Amino acid sequence: MLSYLYSQRLLMAVQTAAMLPHFLSWVVVSYFLYAFLSTDRGFFNNFLINMGNNPVRWYQNPDVWPAILIITHTWKAYGYALVMYMAYITAIDQELYDSAIVDGADVFQMINHITLPMLRPIILILLILNLGNILNTDFGLFFQATKNSGSILSSTQTIDVYTYKALMENANYGYSAAASLLQNTVGCFLLIIANYVAKKISPEEGIL
C-alpha cells in the first residue's frame, strides 16, 4: 500500500515511524508495555475500571501473553522488514506497471502478477533466515518485557530464557550448553532444508 502513495512526505513519515521501534531497546519497550499493563496505573486497567469492570492482573495471567508477545514483537520488528520490501518494490521496472495499465490490468492484478513475483527472492531469503532461527527467541522480549514474572512462565519460558536461568541461577553449565547445541543443530538443519526447497522452487535463488 505504501508503494502506491503519491505523497513522498507521507511515505517517509510512515517509514520513519515504522522503523523507530526497531532501534528501541527491550528495556525501554518493557516500560512502555508496563504503562499499558500495570495493574494499578496501566492504561488498559484504567479503561476497564472506567467501564465498570474489574482490573486484570496481566503479569499473572499466562493465557494473554502469547497474543501480547506476538503484537509487541510485530510492532518492534516490522519496520525493518518494511524497509527491505520497499527497497525491492522501488527497484521494480516501472515499465512493467505501465504496460499492465495499457493492457487494462487493475491494481490487484498488478500486485499478483508483477509485484509479488518480483518480491519472491527477498521473500525466500527472509524465510530461509527466519527458519534457521526458529528456535532462537528474542531474549529481551521473553525476559525483559515480561518483567521475568514467574506466574507466566508457561507462556514465556523459551530455550533462551531457560538457558539463561540455568546458567545464572543454578550455574548448570551442562544443561545450558546442551540447550544451546540443540538450538544451533536444529536451526542449521532447518536452514539447509529451507535452502534446498527454495532452490527446487527456483534454481537461481537460495543463500547456500
Rank of each mutant, 00 (worst) to 15 (best):
N195P: 02
M118I: 14
L96D: 01
V29L: 09
V83S: 07
A35Q: 14
V83Y: 07
L96W: 06
I101E: 14
M84Q: 14
M51D: 00
L127N: 09
V27G: 12
V102F: 07
T90M: 05
L37K: 06
L96G: 02
V28C: 07
M110Y: 10
A13K: 08
V161K: 09
I71E: 04
A13I: 05
A179I: 08
I152Y: 12
N53K: 05
N61L: 12
I201N: 01
Y78W: 15
T156Q: 06
N148F: 15
Y6F: 15
I192P: 00
V64K: 09
I70S: 09
V64S: 12
A198E: 02
Y88C: 04
P62Y: 05
Q15S: 07
W58K: 02
L11A: 15
Y164W: 14
P66V: 01
A18M: 10
P117W: 10
V102R: 05
Q94S: 14
G132W: 00
D63Y: 03
T90S: 06
L182M: 10
V197H: 12
R9P: 04
A35R: 12
T158N: 06
H113V: 05
D93T: 01
L37H: 05
Y85D: 08
T16Q: 05
E205W: 13
I207C: 01
L182G: 02
E95S: 06
S38M: 01
S99T: 08
T16G: 08
Q60T: 11
P62E: 03
W65A: 02
I70C: 13
S176H: 12
N172V: 03
W65H: 01
I128R: 02
I193K: 02
P121C: 00
P121E: 00
M86E: 13
G104P: 08
F47R: 01
H22R: 06
I207D: 01
K147R: 12
S99C: 07
I111D: 10
V107I: 09
L181V: 11
M86P: 15
K199R: 13
G187M: 00
T74M: 08
T16I: 08
L131H: 06
L33I: 15
S25N: 07
A81G: 14
N112P: 08
A171H: 13
N195Y: 01
A17N: 04
T72M: 06
W65R: 00
V83H: 03
A17H: 03
G206E: 00
V64L: 12
I193D: 03
M12H: 06
L48A: 00
R57T: 14
S25F: 07
G174H: 13
F32R: 02
D93A: 00
E205Y: 14
L96E: 04
M51H: 04
Y175C: 11
F143H: 10
G174F: 15
M118N: 15
F47M: 10
N112F: 15
L153M: 12
G132S: 02
V14K: 05
A166M: 14
